[in-house]
Design a protein around this nucleic acid. Structure first.
Length: 918
RNA sequence: GGGCGAAUAGCUCAGUUGGUUAGAGCGCCUGUCUUACACACAGGAUGUCGGGGGUUCGAGUCCCUCUUCGCCCACCA
């Protein structure tokens, strides 16, 4: 951390070099490493990463998600919390298995050709070779996660947690094996949960079929279906019990076309008499609702579509599938069955039909409802706990409109199908005795079972693996050592604080984590769920690989730097609002971030050359009398910026420690407001005004006043860098290391978050007048096209009470406006450009020989007209008794004062115009 | 079918419980290489706050309604 030669610093920030220099130093010094013991004496602040799929490649959604988390964790780390950001990956059962299956397919093989054990081995090798790359990519964007605690859902440690959870839920009577119709992906060869089978609106067709009565083919019932091939598995036609049209037919039999199977007509209130013909064909093995009807009426359940989606007589279906259709894929079977039904004379009509069809969330294949045995979790008791913590305020969701979505889902919760028929995942911890006749029930065990508990004979483990989300939902505590209740991390860091993710996985993951946390540890795993938006392109389409509209964050890092990427993510991030980026124009999206970094860099260069590295005085030690108006002003602005940033970000946790109050509930996590407050301070206040204002003092010979200026500038920039560190950690670290007051062997990444002074400087307002005057002179100069290099004369007419303060600012205001400014009691007569300022101030700029009377009159008249209109409206309001009676007194008083000031200004303007001659 | 959100400057968006002359960034116009910065500086222009109605002393903000987008949920046979 040696001071570089300022003159050798390039004018632009070298992001790549800075990133390469600082990230390793942070990790070497353990800056990101949380300490469980330290957490006993400070507030812990914990975020667990939404673990990306172990095979994932960083995309902009990760960029957004992880930037938000990093900003929060860096903020709290500086604020003195024991901050833990726990990273890791998810083994992603179906997704990862699919990747390896694709590799096998390229070799012309399926997983079944390879066999279970070798296949799992192959996936594990693949993961260990290429997996987790995304974690390195997260480092490239500056993520300050605690890499010493990196977790993996399929690690031995987390596998223990998975088994514990399964067994405990079983002991609680909440895990059971169910026989029902589930969502089946024929391509992935597994069942899916309700959440994994996504709806997509599809333009389909409705086929109307007429089934004749078995003993009187002249009569019949018309049914409608979007899946005509399923008619081969029909076991009944249901009508509503109160439907008089069909009352006489209930109990009689129909003959199924094509296979001649006889099926009964049953009465069931599931049927809606108003829909279509009011009669529904019942296919219990291939439709979840039909299954319920079938159960109620004790109907057979023939399976006519197999696991690969092939139509054939799978089970209890003898004689149901005509030879011409057997062995066909379900889609092909649908095409082929139409002409058959037509020939049989039962196809009444085909109509276009818009409906929602479920698709596999991993491969987009149309899901096939299928009767099978699966493991389920009874969710009702868990959901009730998750609802209770939201209602009590122990949990909040931002933006709060998602709370209603969360509640709605939990109130209507359905049991969770947790078994999958894939191979990559946690094997269901259930063993069956293989001894014929042994009465031993299935053995559910935390440890592997090798012999039957009853007969000592052989056992076989359940073939199924668990839903990936069954390990993810334990993430907030499985990563901390659970089920070991004494694990130091678990004791120190559970429950955590904020969960940052996208709304897409509110049900998949967030709600379930709340349920598991409440169930297993009696506390929700975090008090705040922050749902950020989605990264989209300029047509508002989600960025995706398939659309080709993505932006590679690593490209952005290379071209603009990680800080610029992070800046763009945060600065544009309204609460829960989508982030729009243009994949065809990176410059448009990321240049602002880069430009901002360059600005910071150049302020830093200025400091290095003008303030230097010699020690500076501590601002707290400076007597108020030694501060210039500009000094007082910038210190006040820094206090305001700190307050604004704190208000935008916090509070970090419920004030009473356990539950949010209604007043607190919607507050905080306004990242864009935080970014804007910090940006405004450093750019529009520190750089644009303060720095310019004190240049003469810095350029002057050594003096006490120069020392004050050095101290205040160094202090203000230090504060700015601290406020910005969470957003742009690399450049702030690089610059902070060069500040004269920075201690050796310290990092801004763990320096203290700034705190506003208790007693702000009262004289800060004087500089606001300076700004008014300077802006007015600049405006006049611009209007009369005065060349920038030319100095002009100017007189500031000042009422007595302000005169002394403003006389002291003559030089400063003059230098900033390139004018020889004189503060006086009265204006010098003569042709001049004149501006009326607030509080009785008048500015007179002679501009000898350049003034255009007409132009000047025009300008003043326009201003007078506008001001008079406003004054008239304001007077009207003040004359309205209802306003003065009902509006808050303070407001009325303020409006009166304003009216007076406007009236004075109007008079002044009028006098000027008269003086110019009509 | 049910629910939710959005509509504010050319673009992307702020606008906290109703209260100054509605803001920011980018873009646009004019001028400038002013010894930190042209990735910059200075000065400008730009809005019937989607339409209509209502409540109020006062509405971008609250209520009703319409229009247009978007999202979520649902046993649309």
């Amino acid at each position: 951390m040696t001071a570089p030669d300022p003159n050798s610093l390039p004018t632009t920030y070298d992001a790549a070099a800075t990133q390469a220099a600082w990230y390793p130093r942070w990790t070497e010094h353990g800056v990101f490493t949380a300490d469980a013991e330290r957490a006993a004496t400070r507030e812990p602040f914990v975020i667990v990463i939404p673990p990306p799929n172990v095979t994932a490649v960083l995309h902009m959604g990760h960029g957004l998600n992880n930037t938000v988390q990093d900003v929060l964790i860096r903020w709290r780390r500086m604020a003195g919390d024991e901050a833990l950001w726990l990273p890791g990956t998810d083994h992603a059962g179906i997704a990862t298995q699919n990747v390896v299956e694709k590799q096998l397919a390229a070799e012309g093989k399926s997983r079944f050709d390879v066999g279970r054990e070798p296949f799992v081995q192959r996936v594990a090798e693949f993961v260990s070779r290429t997996g987790g790359e995304i974690l390195n990519q997260l480092q490239a964007i500056g993520s300050s996660a605690d890499w010493t605690r990196t977790a993996y859902t399929f690690s031995p440690e987390l596998s223990i947690a998975v088994r514990e959870a399964f067994v405990r839920l079983h002991e609680d009577g909440l895990v059971y094996k169910g026989h029902r119709v589930i969502h089946w992906c024929p391509r992935c060869g597994t069942s899916l949960s309700d959440e994994e089978a996504e709806f997509a609106d599809t333009a389909g067709k409705m086929y109307h079929l007429r089934y004749p009565l078995a003993d009187d083919p002249s009569q019949g019932i018309t049914v409608a279906t979007t899946r005509p091939e399923t008619m081969l598995g029909d076991v009944a036609v249901a009508v509503h019990p109160d439907d008089e049209r069909y009352a006489a037919l209930v109990g009689r039999e129909l003959e199924l076309p094509l296979n001649g199977v006889r099926i009964p007509i049953v009465a069931d209130s599931y049927t809606d008499p108003a829909f279509g013909s009011g009669a529904v064909k019942i296919t219990p093995a291939h439709d979840a609702n039909d299954f319920e009807v079938g159960k109620r009426h004790a109907l057979p359940m023939p399976v006519i579509i197999d696991a690969e989606g092939i139509v054939r007589e799978v089970e209890a279906a003898a004689g149901r599938v005509p030879e011409s259709l057997a062995g066909l894929d379900r889609a092909e079977a649908r095409r082929r069955i139409i002409p058959l039904l037509e020939t049989a004379g039962v196809l009444i009509k085909i109509e276009p039909h818009q409906h929602s069809v479920r698709h596999c969330y991993r491969c987009d294949t149309v899901v096939e409802p299928r009767l099978s045995d699966q493991w389920y979790v009874s969710m009702r008791p868990l959901a009730d706990k998750a609802l209770a913590v939201l209602r009590s305020g122990e949990l909040r969701i931002l933006p709060d409109r998602w709370e209603a979505v969360y509640v709605n889902w939990l109130e209507g919760i359905r049991d969770w199908n947790i078994s999958r028929q894939i191979w990559w995942g946690h094997r269901v911890p259930v063993w069956y005795c293989t001894t014929p006749g042994c009465a031993q029930a299935p053995m559910v065990s935390r440890t592997d079972v090798t012999t039957c508990f009853t007969c000592g004979g052989g056992v076989r483990q359940d073939e199924d693996v668990l839903d990936t989300w069954f390990s993810s939902w334990l993430w907030p505590f499985s990563t901390l050592g659970w089920p070991n209740e004494n694990a130091p991390d678990l004791k120190a860091f559970y429950p955590g604080d904020v969960l940052v993710t996208a709304p897409e996985i509110l049900f998949f993951w967030v709600s379930r984590m709340v349920m598991s946390g409440c169930w297993f540890l009696d506390k929700p795993p975090f008090h705040t769920v922050y749902l950020h938006g989605t990264v989209r392109d300029m047509e508002h389409r989600k960025m995706s690989k398939s659309l080709g509209n993505g932006i590679d964050p690593l490209d952005v890092v290379e071209l603009y730097g990680a800080d610029a990427l992070r800046w763009t993510m945060v600065a544009g991030l309204g609460l829960g609002v989508d982030v729009m980026l243009d994949p065809t124009d990176l410059e448009k999206s990321f240049a602002p971030g880069r430009n901002f970094c360059t600005k910071l860099w150049n302020i830093g260069r200025f400091l290095l050359t003008q303030v230097g590295t010699e020690p500076v005085l501590a601002v707290a030690d400076l007597p108020a009398s030694s501060l210039s108006a500009a000094d007082a002003w910038i210190l006040a602005r820094l206090d305001q910026a700190i307050a604004d940033c704190d208000a935008a970000l916090g509070p970090p946790r419920p004030a009473n420690g356990s539950a949010w109050t209604d007043a607190e509930r919607g507050k905080g996590l306004r990242l864009s407001e935080y970014a804007e407050s910090a940006r405004r301070f450093v750019w529009n206040e520190l750089a644009d005004w303060y720095l310019e204002a004190i240049k003469p003092r810095l350029y002057a010979e050594a003096s006490a006043d120069r020392e004050v200026a050095r101290a205040v500038l160094a202090h203000a920039f230090d504060g700015a860098l601290r406020l910005l560190q969470p957003i742009v950690p690399f450049i702030t670290e690089a610059l902070w290391q060069q500040l004269p007051q920075t201690p050796a062997e310290a990092f801004i990444a763990q320096a203290a978050w700034p705190v506003a002074r208790v007693a702000p400087t009262p004289s800060a307002d004087t500089f606001e007048y300076v700004r008014d005057v300077v802006q007015a002179i600049r405006s006049v100069r611009s209007e009369y096209n005065v060349q920038p290099g030319v100095w002009v004369e100017a007189t500031l007419v000042t009422p007595e009470p302000l005169r002394a303060a403003l006389e002291a600012q003559q030089a400063t205001a003059g230098a900033l406006s390139r004018s020889r400014l004189t503060v006086a009691a009265a204006a010098v007569a003569g042709l001049s450009a004149q501006v009326i300022l607030r509080d009785g101030l008048e500015l007179v700029v002679p501009l000898a020989g350049m003034i255009d009377i007409d132009k000047e009159r025009q300008r003043l008249t326009t201003e007078l007209t506008q001001l008079q209109m406003q004054l008239t409206a304001l007077d009207g309001r003040l004359a309205n008794e209802k306003f003065t009676a009902k509006a808050p007194p303070a407001l009325v008083e303020a409006e009166r004062g304003k009216a007076e000031d406007w009236r004075t200004r109007c008079a002044q303007l009028h006098a000027k115009i008269v003086a110019l001659g009509a």
